[in-house]
Design a protein around this nucleic acid. Structure first.
Length: 262
DNA sequence: CGTATTTGACCCGCGC
DNA sequence: GCGCGGGTCAAATACG
């Protein structure tokens, strides 16, 4: 069964003191169970925060904790949304007559299982999009630079050629073209493997690193106030100002729900 | 003004 | 060798 990696980064602070890269949450088919380890991890986060901060809370520390609480609340509300969507899905599954594919579904929320071409390093991804949208953009978390477009013989819609924006360091290319069979489906063909993290993974990693530095400075009691403010601001921005954050979450959840039914 | 995209020209492999 | 088609290059253009 396919798994889906999501950079929701619900617990970005689960890092060790060595240089081990922060673990990116990989959501398996079960998604969130009520009794899964998420809450345990989150509790440990709360303990970690309390342990490091409660004591001689200066006004800055109080401010910091308040903002962390906001982030924490966002985290909880998102989990609530997840659970609600899971319940909705159960209702839909138990009453299939009501189910119909939402025509306004966002592109990332409708993925057919990836098609892996053996021994080629090539795989295809099918993405549902608005047929009237001719942009041929597939959001996959990486940055791409378009370097060509061609109309091919077997398909009236043009094929777009992209290189990873980290080229030539990263050799990955992708071709994007509408399906001949269904103009509402875009086929993205990927060649090669990325030798770097996606932009979202990078943001998560950077945040985790900053938190590590922050933690060390906390421990040595030499934290500059300005650093506190910058860190808190970045952490808050990460969750609250990303315009795609909630939409991405909803789309991903929908994707998982639909995958169940395919 | 720097960066990304567009698009015609060019390259290259393949079949005839 | 030639033509065709897919893939790439790079100058021109668009855009923020």
């Amino acid at each position: 069964m396919a798994s889906l990696a999501i950079d929701l980064n619900l617990n970005p602070f689960s890092i060790t003191t060595d240089d081990t890269p922060v673990k990116v949450r990989e959501v398996q088919t079960g998604f969130y169970n009520d009794d899964d380890d998420v809450e345990e991890e989150d509790c440990s986060f709360e303990k970690q925060v309390d342990h490091g901060m409660v004591g001689d809370l200066s006004s800055e520390n109080r401010k910091l904790k308040e903002m962390l609480t906001i982030i924490w609340d966002h985290n909880n509300s998102l989990q609530t949304q997840v659970k609600k969507l899971m319940k909705d899905r159960e209702l839909i599954v138990s009453n299939p007559k009501k189910r119909k594919l939402d025509e306004t579904v966002e592109q990332s929320s409708w993925n057919r299982p990836n098609e892996e071409l053996p021994n080629t390093g090539i795989h295809r991804v099918y993405v549902k999009t608005d047929p009237s949208d001719k942009s041929l953009v597939v959001k996959d978390g990486y940055q791409w630079r378009k370097y060509g477009q061609k109309v091919t013989r077997d398909n009236p819609s043009p094929r777009a050629y992209y290189k990873c924006s980290f080229a030539p360091t990263c050799p990955v290319k992708k071709k994007v073209q509408r399906s001949v069979d269904d103009a509402g489906v875009v086929v993205a063909t990927y060649e090669g493997e990325h030798n770097h993290r996606s932009s979202k993974q990078e943001a998560t990693y950077a945040l985790a690193n900053e938190y590590e530095i922050f933690s060390r400075q906390r421990r040595s009691m030499v934290t500059p106030k300005a650093f506190d403010q910058v860190l808190v601001q970045q952490m808050t921005d990460c969750l609250t100002k990303d315009p795609n954050f909630t939409a991405q979450l909803a789309a991903t959840i929908s994707s998982r729900i639909l995958d169940f039914d395919l």
